[in-house]
Design a protein around this nucleic acid. Structure first.
Lengths: 203, 203
DNA sequence: GTCTATATCCAGATAGAC
DNA sequence: GTCTATCTGGATATAGAC
């Protein structure tokens, strides 16, 4: 495991991550990354041979740091409703601190499917445990029938969409007011979980 | 109103839309657009002065053609549950035929907020009627209490996320199998509406 | 390891013939 | 209106001194 000392290499990685995440691969400039890291372009190429290589390093790092730590809550052994509450709360919390990550990952993944999708497989995201848990609840008759994968997609959608959709939501629903948008996000930590649970709860 | 004859100008617009939507502003090349339109670069600049101008024309066109025609179902005078069903069905249907549009609009909007957000305001998306309808239902006691804006966000999220999240969903949930992903989308036209209605329905 | 200077390439934009 | 040829700027990448 690599330690994140304050070496030049990790400086570059952090700077590159900020720029790439904000502007995307095509939009980012090596000059800008160099400036952000407080060094010059030549040094970027000394540490990472090319823009492509630097990007790939950054993308893998961002992906691995994010997606699994979030999905890990799915593999806990909490009861389903509690798990949903924790998942939504935790997910929205993490994304609030890194609001541009989901757009970044989804955009780059969508424009480099072949090259980057093997990264996903390498990380090995496994929803099986969650799927089984939901199936068990359905068979036990404690929740309404639903395809477990649909449920998972819904949970992801409810958490991620407010961030990728921010520019349009802010204008259309929140008078372009950053404050109102943030209140919305805070409410959402509870409201979204409630919405999901309400839908599958047997009453 | 402009008629879409098969003039050179509209040829360019259509070609540019395909390329821009697929690759984004930064990723698109004027050469590629020219090839797609079966003409040469110089002619692009003859009709639209610059890449910026061409992009803006394309973006406005895509935005205006899409967003309002979808949100129009929100302003019909159907009863709420029926409205949700129609909205979800119609929305997913339209997006299935134009799967890259939401990612395109959201990405570009997020990277050009100042410049493009006035376009949103110009189009004038107005959720007031829907908001009032939901409020009325809540006061009448026919659905569970919910912030109408939250409900709208949830509806959008349930429809849009499967498309922007396709690359990751396909790998993680559908064995990288395009066929399975499409079955998922088809199920979803009904399942998503059901999920939403279940959540707010009083029982 | 880090810098300055430079090479190389490519994309957007223009000139000008037809 | 449409083309070929060309200009120009900017971005990635390399050479080579320190």
């Amino acid at each position: 495991m690599k330690i994140n000392d304050s070496t030049t290499e990790s400086n570059i990685m952090e700077a590159a991550k900020r720029i790439f995440v904000l502007k995307g691969f095509e939009g980012a400039r090596m000059q800008e990354i160099a400036d952000e890291a407080g060094i010059n372009k030549a040094l970027l190429h000394y540490y990472f041979r090319s823009k492509d290589k630097l990007f790939e390093a950054v993308f893998i790092d961002a992906f691995v740091k994010f997606v699994p730590t979030i999905l890990i809550t799915l593999n806990s052994n909490s009861p389903l409703f509690r798990k949903i509450e924790v998942f939504v709360d935790h997910y929205i919390d993490v994304l609030s601190k890194n609001p541009f990550i989901p757009g970044f990952i989804l955009h780059e993944l969508g424009h480099n499917t072949e090259r980057l999708s093997k990264i996903i497989r390498t990380v090995g995201l496994n929803p099986d445990l969650f799927v089984e848990q939901v199936k068990a609840e359905i068979e036990a008759g404690s929740i309404n029938p639903i395809d477990p994968r649909d449920l998972l997609v819904n949970m992801l959608a409810m958490c991620i969409f407010p961030f990728v959709g921010k520019p349009i939501l802010k204008v259309v629903l929140f008078k372009n007011n950053e404050e109102e948008y943030h209140e919305f996000l805070n409410r959402r930590k509870i409201a979204a979980a409630q919405f999901i649970i309400n839908s599958i709860k047997k009453r």
